[in-house]
Amino acid sequence: MVRARADGLRASEPVPAARIADGVKIYGRGEAAVLALDHVSAAFAQGALTAVMGPSGSGKSTLLHCLAGLDRLTAGQVLIGETDLGSLDDKSMTLLRRERIGFVFQAYNLVPTLTAQENIVLPLTLAGRKPDAAWVGRLVASLRLEERLGHRPSELSGGQQQRVAVARALVTRPDLVFADEPTGNLDSRSATDLLAQIRRAVDAFDQTVVMVTHDPRAASYADRVLFLGDGRVVEDLDAPSPDEILEALRRLER
């Protein structure tokens, strides 16, 4: 079943966890200007794992950065819950990231001088808050990191590092977690492992996760897959199978 949605909103649902309305992002100026997001609108429902796919350069990372408050739109609106990111200054934006958003990058997620445990609780540490030991314990257990808490990033495998990053992204019980190709640097076993953990977090903790990926198998873990092409949302699939995803990608490339 294929539906292209122009408004990106599902009228029947309550306030979505995050929303982008008519988002435009232009990099550079004049001749060199690149239209990375071309009037994108989409909403991300609470408690769902959404995958974002599309060819290289289609604007996936840009969309994620703008949603996560790491970058600002050229035009349009991003709302995290009821909060309009456009109205926030740097300080408030930082605090919002710290309190309500988690982020997992493709690589380089951890501070090399800190242990895994310290990296996980870093956002709380920065906020000067005490971690909830029970919650951290659950997270660590569900990501199978108990054995590794005292190690520094350089002493962890790539998969372990990414799991630490996921734990860190979840530690503040954020409204939203964004992940930009979290499995990009991993072998297929570690990748499967990590995706299973993310899926579990969504199911067990009712988390909202938006994940960029190139891997159809990874996308098949999602409740919904958004397809971007040339900075526009071109397709939006509900819980597609890997075959459906491959098909959609093939359509996109044409």
């Binding site: 790491l70 740097d90 300080k91 930082t94 605090l95 990231r97 710290r98 309190e99 982020f103 990058f105 380089y108 997620n109 951890l110 501070v111 090399p112 870093l122 956002p123 920065l126 906020a127 860190r168």
Partner: peptide, 15 residues
């Protein structure tokens, strides 16, 4: 990169 990461996960400029 490290500073960027810290900023991304919520370190303020003042921090």
């Amino acid at each position: 990169r490290e500073i960027g990461l810290l900023r991304a996960v919520g370190m303020t400029k003042r921090q």
